[in-house]
Simulated scan of single mutants.
Amino acid sequence: MRLRNIPGADEVISNSAFCIQNPIELKGKWHEFFGNTNPIHIEVGMGKGRFLMDLARQNPQINYIGIERYTSVLLRAVQKIDEDPLDNVHFLCIDAATLPEIFDHNEVDRIYLNFSDPWPKDRHAKRRLTSREFLARYNEILTADGRIEFKTDNQDLFTFSLEEIEASELWHLDASTRDLHHDPKMNQGNIMTEYEEKFSSKGNPICKLIASR
């Protein structure tokens, strides 16, 4: 998918107090950065940031880091947080493949993956955020009781994700549903993303899984 370049986005991201410019230097020091020992949750592919910031408002005792590769998308989240600052939220403009270079072992307590790019062609399977390649990266940074929460409306991607977890010796599927909004147990406390609201309004069932090691 080709994204429209927004003039000035790079400069805004570079100058934002909420965007960390040299995250590799903070590997193993994230709790020092936040100034507390609270759990660290990250969202990979955060888009415009609605989900992450709603979570942060509800859970001030948790540190949140939003990860987005494209400045033109991250710009929207920066504009939102400038209007309503949150002390427990920061952003990274990075490729998710570099996560083990940025977070140390046992440094992240939870990873959220919401409506990730499905990369539908077979030759691009390694790029999917629920592929075994990315699961191995998550394994390097999660705490012993850490977990992944994944939501999508793409049935093929969800099937692929279930199969990747099942094939892995490191991961265990804790829960899953192919119709989140009609699953009373898994939908309890659910916070919707922009895409989730859009797709569900069209009648698309939302899938969700939770996996741990």
Rank of each mutant, 00 (worst) to 15 (best):
R2C: 06
R4T: 15
I6L: 12
A9G: 11
A9N: 11
I13D: 05
S14P: 00
S16C: 12
C19V: 15
L26P: 15
W30L: 06
E32N: 14
E32K: 13
G35A: 06
N36K: 13
N36L: 15
N36S: 14
N38P: 00
M46D: 08
K48Q: 10
M53G: 07
R57D: 14
N63A: 02
Y64T: 03
G66I: 06
I67E: 01
Y70W: 15
L75T: 01
L75H: 04
R76Q: 15
Q79N: 14
K80D: 08
D82K: 13
D84I: 14
P85Y: 06
L92H: 09
L99W: 09
L99F: 07
P100H: 10
D104C: 00
I111M: 08
Y112V: 06
Y112G: 05
L113S: 04
L113A: 07
L113I: 15
N114V: 14
F115K: 10
S116Q: 06
D117Q: 08
P118R: 07
W119K: 07
D122F: 06
R123A: 05
A125F: 05
R127D: 01
L129K: 03
S131E: 12
S131H: 06
R132P: 07
E133Q: 10
Y138T: 12
T143F: 10
A144G: 04
E149R: 12
K151Q: 07
D153I: 02
N154C: 14
L157A: 13
F158T: 03
F158D: 02
S161T: 03
E163P: 05
I165C: 02
A167R: 10
L170H: 13
D174M: 12
R178T: 03
H181D: 04
H181A: 01
N187Q: 11
N187M: 05
G189L: 05
E194M: 01
Y195F: 15
E196N: 03
K198C: 02
K198Y: 11
F199A: 01
S200W: 13
K208P: 00
L209V: 00
S212D: 01
